[in-house]
Design a protein around this nucleic acid. Structure first.
Lengths: 342, 342
DNA sequence: CTTGCTTTTGCAATCGATTGCGTTAGCGTT
DNA sequence: AACGCTAACGCAATCGATTGCAAAAGCAAG
């Protein structure tokens, strides 16, 4: 059984009475070594409990068998755990990556000072990078993508974008949600979200287009800045209610915001969906469980993660992979008063 | 601005007209180099966009500034994302670890064949290891802990345990839950969970003790094996119901199982909490949102994660840190019919 | 027994940093 | 001017693997 004191390849070489070169090749299943000897050496190494030192291997090979997953938190500093959406995305990505035999390195970026992305890239800790959410770092991403290829971003597709991105059709998703509300006869639809974030501003675009198609010009008083955390969203909703501005529906740009809004509404004695319809975005797990169950624009994260990782591996192999857009689906539940599915 | 072509330390040395040794020391803030020169060199390096190659650094220093977080999935193979509890724990751990300036490496172990833990340890990819859940690997953990110190396990504290663990007082938590049910007048309390897992078997112990203290001997027909996934738990609950065995309460060993049971009960037209009281374990986020809101044994994951990482860093520093137990709290909600808090 | 191939094997350079130890520079004393 | 001492700095070895290249071994044919 495994001795203590970490063995090195040289030790295995001694045990097997061959040179290190031979051990290295045997463990790598290099056909230069005849098959029976290869297996013999592998057996000896395994029995001795030998494991290749990855630091040394990475240095020499210039690769790490690791994918970095980055959450830029330029806006909402604080914790990773805050957003169930991110969490689920991370889980899916981890599945896809480990399935391909790579490790997952979590990079939480809190300091988005100049060059943060370059600092990650040049650290050579990973062979490829997935960035979850553009945050407000569109420029930095564009810059990095020029010289660093194995990089895929989850987020909206923006004009003049160099980097490869995968994301939901935000405009279409928002449009579908707002169209649904309009179809229910709602006319004063509030928009809750942070316009500074690219994905959200695309959703705003869809919101405006849907209204315009219905002959309604959007009312700036109904556009409310709301962060992703439950508490701040609750506050934003409360202020909207207390402002006295009339509204009969809310299009929230995330489910957390929608849930907070519902809570604020019922705290104010306003019935959902009786008086106000609410639609969220993401369709996270809780959405179906809340009271009333939340209508939401569903993003297919399993497919999204698979696509991201597929594209990333293509890029790592030197191929040039284009951005991709996923089609969102409106999942209708009780929170907006409608009955059947989309 | 940053040139392309990854610079090496030698390049920076040339730029600064000093030796590599000096650059290395300057970047490490070594007081051997006078402060003004140190800052000068740091400035030059930053302006050139130089970043230390971590592979090389790790090899030489024999440390990686990385903590590995491992999820042994010996039992329920499949995906990481399945269990909200694991997910939340991971988020908390990641927070604690990154706050201390370390990276987080996710190790999903699917192949628990002989020596899996040794393979991770000897790969030298990380400076310390957090294992989330003992799964059925108690022996392997004990064995590894003998020679590898920077290792902390989330899970139950078992007899004859060598490794350092942090976990809830499972016996006490279960006891409190079952006591509560007994206090409500329930007598036929079913137990849902996988006894093969150490933590669960401890909860079973608490269940038995609570019953015994009330003068009840536990009925094996009420002890139902149930996995962690919603589907299998639902199936298990359904079978219990259809078996015709009489019961008036369920103690589920996880919230997912509890939620599945509630759903199975209401599908069978059984009222919760009218006819059957249900208590879960973990108090995950959804617990408060479900209908009816779920009574559950709360584990303080934030504190748990902090404790784990504290102990791990102590052990990494060579100190000997003992195992720790957290006190669980029963959060009473509508699913068991009780009204006020514990 | 050579010669000419192919198959195996090993030497030694390499990846890019860190650091022990020895050397040089700088300064104050006598 | 010589000496002693400390502060700065650089040489070269080192971490533990991989791999190009050349040498050795094996084998068949002449």
């Amino acid at each position: 059984m495994a001795d203590d004191g970490p063995l090195k390849m040289a030790d295995v070489a001694r045990l097997a009475k061959v040179s290190m070169s031979t051990v290295s090749r045997a463990l790598a299943d290099n056909p230069l070594i005849p098959e029976d000897r290869r297996r013999e050496i592998q057996r000896i190494a395994a029995e001795a409990g030998y494991v290749i030192n990855q630091s040394a291997r990475s240095l020499r090979m210039r690769k790490t068998q690791t994918i970095g997953v980055v959450f830029p938190l330029g806006h909402d500093v604080g914790q990773l755990i805050s957003d169930p959406f991110f969490i689920e995305m991370f889980g899916r990505l981890a599945d896809e990556i480990t399935t391909r035999g790579y490790q997952v390195l979590l990079c939480r970026v809190t300091d988005t000072s100049d060059g943060w992305l370059n600092r990650i890239i040049q650290s050579h800790r990973q062979d490829g990078l997935v960035i979850v959410g553009q945050s407000d770092q569109h420029e930095a991403l564009n810059h990095a993508a020029e010289s660093y290829h194995p990089l895929v971003v989850w987020g909206g597709h923006l004009s003049g974008q160099v980097y490869c991105s995968v994301g939901t059709d935000n405009i279409g998703g928002a449009r579908r949600a707002v169209d649904h509300l309009l179809g229910l006869g709602r006319k004063r639809i509030a928009f809750l979200g942070m316009l500074e974030l690219p994905e959200i501003s695309l959703r705003f675009e869809g919101y405006v287009r849907a209204l315009r198609a219905a002959g309604i010009e959007h009312d700036p008083a109904l556009v409310i800045p709301a962060h992703f955390s439950f508490e701040t969203a609750y506050e934003a909703a409360r202020e909207l209610i207390e402002s006295g501005t009339a509204f009969d529906a809310i299009f929230a740009t995330s489910d957390i915001i929608a849930l907070a809004a519902i809570q604020a509404l019922s705290a104010a004695g306003i019935d959902v969906p009786g008086q106000v319809s609410v639609v969220g975005f993401d369709d996270i797990a809780i959405a179906a469980q809340s009271t009333p169950p939340l209508t939401s624009v569903q993003q297919d994260l399993a497919k999204g993660a698979r696509t991201i990782v597929d594209l990333l591996f293509k890029r790592m192999a030197g191929e040039d992979a284009p951005s991709a857009t996923l089609l969102p689906k409106l999942v209708v539940r009780k929170s907006c008063g409608g009955a059947t599915a989309s």
